[in-house]
Design a protein around this nucleic acid. Structure first.
Lengths: 190, 190
DNA sequence: TCATTGCATCAACATTTGTTGATGTAAATA
DNA sequence: TATTTACATCAACAAATGTTGATGCAATGA
């Protein structure tokens, strides 16, 4: 691992643990065991650090989402692909993924508005997907706004909390359990 | 609304919007349209403000949880009461509730450890409840750790996001939809 | 060989931010 | 009336924090 990669990893880890605002340049310098000024060999500004992390993971995520939605699958299959995508990103870029949940609030304008707009757009897509599924009888009839939020919150948990327990469960088991929960809940199937 | 209540409400609102770390005493003074020093007529310190808000709502929540768990209801009924409790607290103390999700990270030791311990204890109780439900055939067989996290994340969404849209949906409709989602998912019941 | 690149060092500055002390004043309470 | 309570004002400080500029040095690559 080059020093630059080490820096990226450490800064991400710190921001994930303490939050962006609570993470100081001196904190980063500290875990890197280097001088404070040295941090600026890798970044332009603290804001820039947040922005690069956030928009990098955000773009990857949204691109993949669009690929899924543009595919020929039916709504149920698309939803499963979407869940699969969440699991994949969580496994591969856990620290960055967790930032998407909380730290976007510390973006400054106009980046923050940009981020929020993209997120809203994404949430509308999910809502449409759920409505499509209801329309063709694959999902039961629900308040679609509420269902969207509940689905999204079930996924957000992954991004937010699955940074620690990485090793504990197999990726495909996790995926299957998630699909099952979203699709059947915790009740016994009759 | 007395000036003190106005202060509590405004400070909560700011912390909810910007996060605790990003909310400055001067921000609070600003929305109160008063001098900076004046804020200290109501608080001892910024930390103290966070602590009082967090532990107040936390205690109320946990007390109610314990009452539910100590009751004679079966697991399914207990879970429904628990969901009902989430909705109730969300409706009555939305701003404080939202703090429980994110802002506990900014507690200082030993308060933070105390908070985390209580939360862990709570999560273990939920896990036990789910296991009990599986044991008596009310819930289907699942990885109980995973199921706990998914249930909790579905509830967390309320605390985190339901501060805006208060008026849009009836409380009991919301409750019913939540129970339905947790219990049956979004799939069609066969 | 020469220039570039990656990283280190040290000192310093301007802001932001939490906090305090001393004081005033008007209303509520006893 | 006397006293406490609630709130306001102003000035100021110490610490934390983001950022810069100038410089050195060793390895890489042309």
């Amino acid at each position: 691992m080059t020093k630059r990669e080490e820096f990226i990893y450490n800064s991400l880890k710190l921001i994930h643990q303490k939050g962006f605002k609570a993470t100081t340049i001196r904190d980063i310098a500290n875990v890197m065991e280097c001088d404070v000024a040295n941090v600026y060999n890798y970044i332009d500004s603290k804001q820039g650090l947040l922005e690069s992390h956030l928009f990098s993971i955000n773009e990857e995520f949204h691109n993949n989402v669009d690929d899924i939605l543009a595919s020929g699958y039916d709504p149920k299959a698309k939803l499963e692909k979407l869940i699969s995508l969440y699991v994949e990103i969580t496994m591969e870029r856990p620290l960055e993924a967790s930032l998407l949940v909380n730290e976007w609030r510390h973006l400054k304008e106009p980046k923050q508005t940009k981020f929020i707009n993209e997120r809203n757009k994404y949430e509308r897509k999910v809502k449409k997907l759920l409505q499509a599924g209801m329309g063709c009888g694959q999902f039961r009839d629900m308040d679609s706004a509420l269902a969207t939020n509940m689905f999204l919150s079930s996924m957000r948990w992954l991004f937010q909390k699955y940074t620690n327990n990485k090793s504990k469960i197999n990726r495909f088991d996790l995926e299957r359990e998630l699909v099952n929960y979203v699709y059947n809940g915790i009740g016994v199937s009759v």
